[in-house]
Design a protein around this nucleic acid. Structure first.
Lengths: 130, 130
DNA sequence: TTTCGAGGTGTAAAAGTATGCATATCGTTA
DNA sequence: TAACGATATGCATACTTTTACACCTCGAAA
């Protein structure tokens, strides 16, 4: 889930995690939730997406519920029943969100890369005097 | 500890957390650990710093141990005994690390600000066609 | 109208993380 | 040399988060 971290001279890596939260901070949409949504888009099923993301269906469902409650709009069109049991797909609003988040994440990666590069350079300098 | 998140149109906030890890990923230096180090520098005591950071001394000590084990160098000069019981101060290497980390964090904040601004704009556009 | 498999839900167990507390150690200073 | 208070450490408890599992719901297609 997390991006592979970046290395310094001393086998040091930088990691980060971002997430969205609501006004009260009680709900959250994590990186893993966005990965899940992307997989649902790809596979058309919450169950398959959860497996692909290596999380339990229970958690996947809970995360989606939490996200939808927080955003106050549907992220997923869920279809129950039928010979195949059912299937799911992202709503237009969810696609928009996912698209914006992907762009956000990409910008982040680039920024992190640059910032960590500076960090590495700084760590190669002599210690601060004070 | 975490920076106050930023808001979108729909009461949506962006949060993030960064941390350093070692090669194997078993150790970590979190944001809270750096805050702790900064407080130790300011207050000259692990105990006082832990109180100021609102974490238990037990956790503070464990975090420091973990960080030093990971980096394989001392972060803190610890003085035991004496009428005052003892005191602590950061090593030069720790000061360097802290300085570099602060700069890194600042760059992060700026990047987050910019990236989230773009995110907000994207969320105001019409939904993706597909 | 029966069947099938994914969606949907409660709850107990497990795993991971933090706290609280007890207790030992150290060494300077009075 | 006795006392003091922060460092140091183990361990039980508590809290949080995730998993495991059981079981129900739904509705198109056979």
């Amino acid at each position: 889930m997390d991006k592979p971290p970046r290395q310094t001279k001393h086998d040091l890596f930088l990691n980060y995690k971002i997430w969205l939260s609501g006004l009260t901070g009680n709900g959250r949409i994590s990186d893993t939730t966005f990965s899940l949504l992307a997989k649902i888009k790809e596979l058309g099923s919450i169950k398959l997406a959860a497996q692909a993301c290596d999380i339990s269906y229970r958690k996947a469902w809970g995360d989606i519920e939490e996200a939808e409650k927080m955003l106050e709009y549907q992220l997923i069109d869920k279809q129950r029943g039928g010979k195949d049991g059912g299937h799911s797909q992202l709503t237009p609003a969810c696609n928009k969100l996912l698209e914006a988040y992907d762009a956000l994440h990409q910008k982040f990666d680039d920024s992190v890369e640059a910032a960590f590069e500076d960090f590495r350079k700084a760590m190669l300098q002599k210690p601060a005097s004070k």
